[in-house]
Structure formats: structure tokens, C-alpha cells
Nucleic acid binder design. Structure first.
Lengths: 208, 208, 208, 208
DNA sequence: GATGAATGAGTATTCATTCAT
DNA sequence: AATGAATGAATACTCATTCAT
């Protein structure tokens, strides 16, 4: 994964580099398997096997299966948030609200395209994984709710849609649509997907 | 569950009544536990214990854990569909489309109020339960998509929202919102919930 | 099985007659099932089901599964011994030793033809059934050994074949051959079977 | 089992040696227990306990109970066949048919002396084990039958003994006698056993 | 006598986790 | 750091047997 001769990693010892590589292999193996079979459908042996390391090696890198799962989720979410922030920023500065919605949707779709596995993990809410994934989704939902509340108070958004409900609704919508689309991206073109989500979202978010 | 003095059941033998009662206890125990801990988080012993019967008794009534799960889900879905059909019917006859949307939402909320456990099971998409629950949700999604497609062709709905995406979006939205609301119905009043969902749904469904 | 109007049973009450019939049904069901699947391969429920009675009824007639098994075996063995004695008797009185061997073999083959199931049970030595079946076979083997010993002492049989070994050998031979033949009687004609067994047996039993 | 100081195994890692040792302990434990209690009378826990390993360890070495059983049987049969072939060979080359029979019997008895447990397993035909053991015995029986058929056609053996019957008879005889003798070898001396079996067998095999 | 629902001990098998090498 | 054999608790499912009706 990380070339041992990569000069940018020159500071780390040979052992450390190798350690890092093993860790990455395990993460990658976990991503693939969890996405396909869920938290329960995968054993630590499976993950180790997929990473081409011995069973015990798993525990040199992760405290347990849950921790690996959480790490993958957390990594994905950080990346997603960063991506959204980055793409949305110019529209915020320009005060272009329609642009913000569109940029958000585009960021989500971009992410889904690149990280099918994480999308499926994130939004598949395996009841045990819930303890992990739900936090994140709820965070997202309350962020949306909060933004909406501000818009409402500013008189920009209608008052007959509860912000809490809207936050949950938006999250549920994206989760479902993205994980459906990830399974088979040929179902709709990227453009149609973005257009549709933006439309629905906009109509839900703005006054009719 | 079944009143022993119910004269309409007078024909069934004592044994039959008892059998039926045990079965219902198991179903009820399953509903409660699955809703709280998901398919994996519950053992057949737990369910039997919750129903106050011996472990082996479980298998006199259900082939295995999955079958009980599926039975609960299927029962809930049938009831839900019936409920929706019933409440929507008058508006369809009156050709009142806005009324249809509102009635659908009300039916969903009514159901969620009465069947918290089933809602959580139905929409929690435990990755293993998926095989059971997903069918149902996909059915729902394609029904919505189909309806939308007809509206589009009739020129009533705008063409820039893909029907497939819309179906998934609506299902995801309801799933998330209802299961969030079921957890703590004091979050929003029933009325606000219905109003919000109707609004969002209507704006997604009809031309702006 | 036993006609309820059979006057020879007139003494027994209606209840007793019915009881007897149920018992017979269970025995018959046991014979069929044990022969096909062995002691372990059959549950008491299977047997009750085969006899078209309820599960609990089994225990009104037999202490447990083993007892039914033993009863079937014992019944079969009694019948077999009686059959052999009956067919062999005239030859013994006539002092026709070759005739005795032939009659024994014929009796065994007759029995095997009529009681395929019992033959398979008797000689299939399910390790748990062993406790039941082995007694019987060992009895048979020592009877043969004893007879041989007398012949030896009378100078009629050669001394270089140990009677104990011979007894076991004869029993093993018949067990194997009869249960092989029972499975598919078209493998050899009845006559060829008798001829072959008689030949082998005679040569083992008599001086060369 | 495998001496840790055995230089020929020096190449294998400590882990491999230990793995092999555990496997052997399980096989040995299985042999002992199956011989005494049959396939059903023994649990995988019993076997693991007998091998002084934990219950789960069993499944690191064998797919399931049946597989261990089959492995023991197959190993025993291979060894037996090799032993017979080896001891019989010189007599075949010398065209000494009487010698062949005697050598076969001696090989069987030698094997029974060394492998009491396997003999009991092989010839105890536990109805469930049958699927495993029967194949082997039938193979043996048809080999004998085939040999006999050739002798018949060559005019060396009498035509009034059916080869199929003879094959089954011989197998049944040996199975019974060897397993009887294994239980308590003091019943007859080794020599008397060989002499007796040879006699019976020869008289069955050759013209009187 | 018959019924059949209920019992609960028993058993095969899996898998997260540890640890000696 | 890595290995991989071993562990043993956990769990789904079976079945002989009992007993209230």
C-alpha cells in the first residue's frame, strides 16, 4: 500500500513503515468485507485473511472488531465532512443558498462514487453497528436541523416544517438513495441523481 | 390475548387455545426484544424467557429465529398496507391528490404510534435482517416510483426528478423520521410531524 | 391389525382391544423405521407419527425407545428360534446331520424373506443397539459352538477348528449374507442362496 | 507421538509440530472412544477432553465428528490393505493358493492384534457409521467375489457356491470373529484362531 | 386411553480473543 | 512485529419424556 521506499515516509523506521502498511491492509480488508456482509457477517479471521496477515496480527493493530469498524466509519465521516465543507465554501461566501444545496448534494454523490464501501457501512445501520453509525447520522441530522432553524428565524424558510423532522428526513433520504445508488450506479446517471436530490431537497428546504 | 370467554372461539379446544396463546406470547416477546436489540442481539432463549416458556418451546412454534422475525415483519407490513389503503381510499375516489399524500402520512404516523416495535424492526435494516426487511422497503419504493412515473407521463409531475430516486428518497425519509420519532414521541407533536412530512412530501411530489 | 370383531379376542374389553391395536401399530411403525434408519435415526415422534397416534401415546405402551426396540428384536428372535426348531426337528430325529444344516439354512432364509426389517435390525449392530442385539447373536453363537463341541468329542468333527471361533464365524456369515440379501433379494435366487450357504457351512462344520 | 528431537522433522516449525501432535492426540482419543461407545455415544467434547484440549480445538483439526470418524476408518483400512498385500505377495508369486488364504488370515489377525479399536469401529456397523464403514466392507466383499469368480471359471472352484454370497459370507465371518476376539484375545490363542479361520475359509473357497 | 403442548438437558459448532514461540 | 494454535464461552437447535386436559 505504502511503498517502503517512499521517501515521504523516510522518517519512520522500517518496522514502523511495515506496521503502518499492515494496519492499512487490515482497514482495507475491513472496508471491503463490512460493506458486503455487515458487522456480524464478518469474523476477525476473515479480515486478517483478507489482509493476508495472521489472525493474531489483527489485535496488534485494533483493540477489537468494533474498534476497527468505528475507525473505518470515523475516517469516512471525517473525509466526507471535509469534502462537503470544501465544496460548499465558495457558495457560502457568495451567499448563494441554492448553490450551497447543490454543492452539498454534489459532494455527497462524489463521495458515494469514490467510497461505495463506506457508504454502505455508514448507512446500513446494522443494529449492532448502530451504536457506531447512528451517532454520526444524528450529528448530521442535528446540523441540518440547526441550519434550518436559523433560516426559519431569519424568515427565509417556512415555519410549517419542523426543523428536527426535516433534519432526520434529509439524512434518511440521502442515506437510502446513496446506498441504493452505490449498489448499482447504472440505475441513474450521476447528473440525474444530483438534479433529483437537489430538487427534492430544495423544495423541502425552501418556501414553496 | 384471546379472551378465553370469547364465544366466537368456543369451538377451539383448550389445547388449541393454549397453543395459540403461547405463540402470541413468543411473537410479542420477539417484537419487544428485536426492536430493542436487533436480530443478532437476541437469542432464542431470550425470546422464550421473555415469553415465559422453556427454550425448546420456541421451536414448537417457529422453525427458527429468522422465521419468527420474518413473521413479525410480514404481519406488520400487511397491517400497514391495509391501514394505508383504508385511509387513502376516499381521497382517491374524490381525486384529491393532496388529500392522498396527507392520508398516507397520517396512516404511517398512526401505525408508528401503535407499533413502535415493528417500526424499529422494519426500518432498522440490520444487515442480516436486510434479507427480510429490504424486500419490503424496496417494494414500497418501487410502488412510489411507479406512481410518480404515471404522474410524470400525465404531465402532472415535473420531469427533472427521477422517479427511482424519488421512491428511494421517500422511503428513506419516512423510515428515518418514523423510527426517530418512535424512540421518543415527545420530540414533536403528532400534528407537527404530519404537517412537516406532508409538506416535504408534497413539495417533492408535485410541481413547484 | 387385529379385527375388533375377532371372536377369539372376545374376552378383552373394547378398550383393551383398542389398546392392543395401538400397541401393534407402534411395533409395526418401529420395525419399519428402525430397519431403515437405525435406533438413533428414529425419534419417538417419528414412530408415533408412523403409527398415527399422538406423541405421548408411545409412552402408554412402552417404557422408552429402547424397550420398543428390544421388544421387536426379542419377538423376532423367538419367532426365528421357533421356526428353526420346527424345521430342523425331523432331521434330528432321523439323525440326518446334513439335513439339519440344510434345514437350518432354509429356516433362516425363510425368515429373512418374511421379515426383512427384523433381519436388518438384528444384524446391523448399531453400537447402541448392540446392548440389545449382541446378546441374542452371542446366544446363537454359543449354541452353535456347543453343538460343535459335542460333535468334536464324538469324533465326528475335526479338532483343528475351535468351536468358539466357528460359532462366531457362522453367526457373522449368516448375519452379513442375510442382511445383504434382504436389501435386494434379486441378487441371488433363494435356491442358490440356500445351496451356497449350506455348502460353505457344511464344509466348515464337517471333516474335509 | 512425533519425537520433538526427530531430526527428519527438523524443517517443520515448532507450531507445525505442535499442530501435528494435537491432531494425533485427537485421532487417538477418537479411536479409543469410538471403539468403546460408537459414533453416537461420543461427543466432540468427549473427544477433545480425551485429547486434553479445549472443545473448540477439535474444529481446528477436523471439519466435524464424522470427518474424524472417517479419517480413522480410512487410515485403518489403508493400513490393513497394505498389510495384506505385503504378506500375501510371496504366495501369489509362488502360485501357492493355500498359502494365500493362510497369509490373508494371518494379516487380518496381525492387524486385529495391533489395532483393536479400529477393528471394533470397522466392523461394528453403527447404523450411522454405516455410510462410512459399509463402503469399505462392500469393497472387500466384491473383491473376494471377483477372485472367486475367476477361480470358478478356471474350474478350480466348485460352481455350486455363488461368488457374491461367498464374498459377503467371508467378510461377515471375519468381521464377527475378529471383533469378538479383539474384545478378549484370551478366548483363543492366536495360532488356534489362524488355524480355525484358515480351515473354514479354505473349505469354503476350494472344492471339497 | 389418548392427546399434544411443554419441558429442559444435551450437543454440535462458531468465533472473538489470548499468548507462547 | 508477526504468527497461528489454542481457548472456552456462547448459541441455535433436537428430542426423549412428562403431564394437564
Amino acid at each position: 500500500m505504502v511503498s517502503p521506499t517512499n521517501p515521504s515516509k523516510a522518517g519512520s523506521s522500517a518496522g514502523a513503515r511495515s506496521r503502518h502498511a499492515t494496519r492499512e491492509r487490515l482497514l482495507e480488508s475491513g472496508r471491503l468485507l463490512f460493506a458486503k456482509h455487515g458487522l456480524h457477517g464478518v469474523t476477525t479471521h476473515d479480515i486478517a485473511h483478507g489482509a493476508e496477515v495472521a489472525a493474531g496480527t489483527f489485535y496488534l493493530h485494533f483493540k477489537n472488531k468494533r474498534e476497527l469498524f468505528r475507525e473505518i466509519i470515523d475516517g469516512a465521516v471525517s473525509e466526507l465532512i471535509e469534502l462537503i465543507d470544501h465544496q460548499v465554501e465558495p457558495y457560502i461566501e457568495a451567499n448563494d443558498l441554492a448553490g450551497v444545496v447543490q454543492a452539498q448534494v454534489e459532494a455527497l454523490v462524489d463521495f458515494a462514487e469514490e467510497h461505495r464501501e463506506e457508504i454502505r457501512m455508514l448507512f446500513s445501520a446494522d443494529s449492532d453497528a448502530a451504536a457506531v453509525g447512528t451517532d454520526v447520522l444524528n450529528l448530521l441530522a442535528s446540523t441540518i436541523a440547526e441550519g434550518r432553524r436559523e433560516l426559519m428565524e431569519a424568515g427565509v424558510a417556512p415555519k410549517d416544517v419542523d426543523p428536527g423532522v426535516l433534519g432526520q428526513a434529509m439524512v434518511g433520504m440521502c442515506a437510502q438513495v446513496l446506498s441504493w445508488w452505490s449498489e448499482d450506479p447504472s440505475r441513474v446517471t450521476r447528473e440525474a441523481l444530483i438534479e433529483s436530490l437537489t430538487r427534492i431537497q430544495r423544495s423541502g428546504t425552501h418556501p414553496v
